[in-house]
Write a protein that binds this DNA or RNA. Sequence first.
RNA 1: GGCCCGUUCGUCUAGGGGUUAGGACGUUAGAUUUUCAUUCUAGAAACAGGGGUUCGAUUCCCCUACGGGCUACCA
Length: 507
Amino acid sequence: MSKKVRVRFAPSPTGGLHLGGVRTALFNYLFARQNEGDFILRVEDTDQTRFVEGAEEYIIDCLNWCGITPDEGPHAGGGFGPYRQSERKALYRQYAEQLVKQGNAYYAFDTPEELEQKRAEITNFQYGHAHRSSLRNSLFLPVKEVQELLDKGTPHVIRIKMPVDETIGFTDMVRGRVNFETSQVDDKVLLKADGMPTYHLAVVVDDYLMQITHAFRGEEWLPSAPVHLLLWEYLGWKNEMPQWAHLPLILKPDGHGKLSKRDGDRLGFPVYAMNWTDPKSGDLTKGFRELGFLPEAFVNLLALLGWNNGTDQEIFTLDELVEQFSMERISKAGAQFDFEKAKWFNHEWIRQSTAISLTPNVISVLRQHDISAENHPQLTKIIDLVKDRCTLLTDFYEHASYFFQKPAESKIDWTSIQPKWNDAKTDFFIAFIQKTQETASWEAASIEAAFKALTQEKGIKIGEVMLPLRVMLVGGKFGPAVFDIAEVLGKEETVERIELALAILGR
RNA sequence: GGCCCGUUCGUCUAGGGGUUAGGACGUUAGAUUUUCAUUCUAGAAACAGGGGUUCGAUUCCCCUACGGGCUACCA
């Protein structure tokens, strides 16, 4: 009987939630659901200097928006709390001290300034076997002096003592066997002078205490894996160590390198899941959500960044992803982010969504432009008419607003009809208005029939008046079938718009 | 610099000892839509290089090149 699967997403609350972070969270979620396990949110706020107000709530909101809400976490509770590392501070010291007692770690009294000095003096300086003896630590200072320093409360850190010459390796779920030479790894700080653990200690202690079975993180963590491996061993928990998976990085669309918030600003696309306002500077960074992405599309595109199911299928619901996700099919190489493809995913999702499910989003987009759409009797019909041509939810403003308000005179594309305008056309439209008054029915097919009959009657080519009608009703050369538009607009509104246009063209 | 990871069309990727190397985004050209978008059809577009192993390598192995990550009392 194997243990219950438990995975964690462990972000640091230092700002907006990056696309890559959401993907890591997503893979955690998929794996947990697939294996009927638990998905835990752990807030890694051990660096007090980088703490940003509101970031934690923001992260939780992002996960909720994506539909990948954690089962346990600071917001949800659970039997393994607290879930903020800052609230677990008291817990870590004993493990660090245990390591010191065992001889696997030591006290170091060097100040940050002294170390900076060393780094300047010695090229490729590492706090490790090569330089330990010339530094101020409990490995080389006389026992008495160490005790005195400790008694005086001298600020110090606890560092791991890396073995001089060992090969340490593990089997990564995506990369297979990975080995490291301990001689190349420095003596990482485990406990900082302020009593807080570093990531290295905290991740091991908490993964152990929270009974994490599988640990997914970005590839940038691979080089510090040997430290974590050793810690699991030294703490005596080797058999409980989770299986590691180092996920491929998400790279810049141009050139290479990790995708960063800056790239989004520079290239004009979002990197954060939702809008993020920096509480200090007040700077707003746009998110996928506010730009008009459906959470389903966002999750879908993220899942395909580094994973596929081996077929040509590209559109997946969250449920399908849960069912089909597999660690074996995660690619090893980093993936450049392509915003064009991201938009394609959203377009597909909008097209495949029902008008009913899109309704709240469309109402909200229109409301941002002071258009109240919620009471429109034909709202779902309007959505069905235009959704195929909306790539982003925000496009519903451009493609649907004319159903709710007359196009502004200044916005109407007069240049496409005015040059070829003549009295015959004026006559035609006047006659058309009259004709509309004679019949009670008002459906696309009958309007079209009447319109066409009139062109014959008047001896005017249909193409000559179709485009003008469209521009009168819509304001430009776009939109669905013009008689469908007229039907939704209603007879009265259609006539008003034609009359209005006629008046302007007649000036 | 050192260590680690990686390398199939511009991008995301499938494939895997013998294939016309497949799909998608983007792109090009046509068709349709009496508008625009969609849609449809067609096209251009890739196995980093060199050595092995093999009857045969894009596929397996090695080297090189290139790219990336890490190298903090940050995560």
